[in-house]
Write a protein that binds this DNA or RNA. Structure first.
Lengths: 210, 210
DNA sequence: TGTACATCAGTGAACGCGCGTTCACTGATGTAC
DNA sequence: TGTACATCAGTGAACGCGCGTTCACTGATGTAC
């Protein structure tokens, strides 16, 4: 039942953006709006559930894509598989992507519980990058300290330099997907797949994957 | 009067995100909501005006930042000035940034008139990049064709390769600002200025600015 | 096998609020003669 | 200098719609004796 509500809610997200309406969801299910309160204490809790689900299905897709590459040492290939999987997932459920990576929903504050699910995708990326050869980077002190703190919380054997390059690549990846998804490529680039691959290539160079 | 409405509307954008309410704006101005219809035929027209203004104030800031660099040949310095100006502008008016670069407002379709204002910022970036030394890049055919079409519409003497690298750097720049602004850096990187500069540096390398 | 009771999913009305937009209007200001 | 008229910014009531949330309730299903 909870699953059915979430499915319908996801359909509404797709149609109306983040303006998710409990009443509309209930209507679609042939129920009265108050009935949903048996399953979710409030609209924000439904939103939170959807956010966590989104992070998790993205995480699933990304882990599957990485796991699907037999040659574990071919880091560049794994990078491409993961990058493409992220984009494919985003294009397939744009509103869920916007929910987790788009402009924040007004008045909604994501609770702590989302953090773990949110971390799954970056972790896969960083595991790949951890295998890259060291490539010098002049990281300013304060940034180095922030990154060192991040390394400490991760169960990955990654150098500060790798993490610096990796986090930047991850941000570029996010940028590339968002730019396309939020319509900024419209009337400019039509060969979207190829353009994205071109960017993946440049990012792979940036992190030093061979 | 129109300006006052827009000013108040901007304040509301800042508070409530893109859920701009005509009634709330009117209330704030001590007017009745219907009075606004003397100035804007509909809520969407007000939104369009705000979007165009946002593009233009960003464009102003960016052009001023670039123009402020005396040594026109120091392309890397100009790149930094412009990149920082974009970020500074975004941090100063986050909701206006979200309006033009964030997830699309549900049900709102930006009219054609926004295109010119939207182009001002990328144009400044590309003028800088046009001066960079040629740096080879293997651009797939379809992408090369899309980029060639873009060059044709611009009044800039820029090579396809420079444009390819430049557009990618612009997307990364957008990604870096959005990532920070949309809260993805929270609890991860605190040294935001330095981290952003680090990214500008890597982008400048990418486009081959010396 | 049959009765009494508890559980609980879903109802329907209501509260109090929001919104965009239309429309006939008031009343002050400015213009023309 | 004074009167008649036009302009037009802003009003207020209304239409028809939306929303999240509460609350007492119905009525079917399952359980215990």
């Amino acid at each position: 039942m909870i699953d059915e509500i979430k499915t319908v809610a996801r359909r509404h997200l797709a149609a109306d953006g983040a303006n998710l309406s409990l009443r509309a969801v209930a209507r679609d299910m042939g129920m009265v709006s108050s009935a949903l309160y048996r399953y979710f204490p409030s609209r924000d809790d439904l939103l939170t559930a959807l956010i966590i689900d989104a992070y998790n299905t993205l995480g699933d897709a990304v882990e599957a894509a990485d796991g699907g590459i037999e040659e574990r040492d071919d880091l560049r290939r794994r990078w491409f598989a993961v990058g493409r999987a992220i984009r494919r997932w985003a294009l397939a459920q744009p509103s869920e992507y916007a929910l987790i990576f788009g402009s924040p929903v007004p008045g909604y504050q994501a609770p702590r519980e989302t953090a773990f699910a949110a971390g799954r995708t970056p972790v896969v990326l960083l595991r790949i990058i951890a295998g890259a050869p060291e490539k010098a980077l002049d990281t300013p002190g304060p940034v180095a300290r922030d990154l060192a703190a991040v390394v400490a919380t991760l169960d990955i054997d990654i150098s500060p330099t790798q993490l610096a390059r990796g986090s930047v690549a991850w941000i570029h990846l996010f940028g590339a997907v968002s730019f396309e998804l939020f319509g900024q490529l419209n009337n400019v680039i039509e060969a979207r797949d190829e353009y994205f691959d071109l960017q993946l290539d440049l990012m792979a160079d940036l992190v030093g994957l061979s």
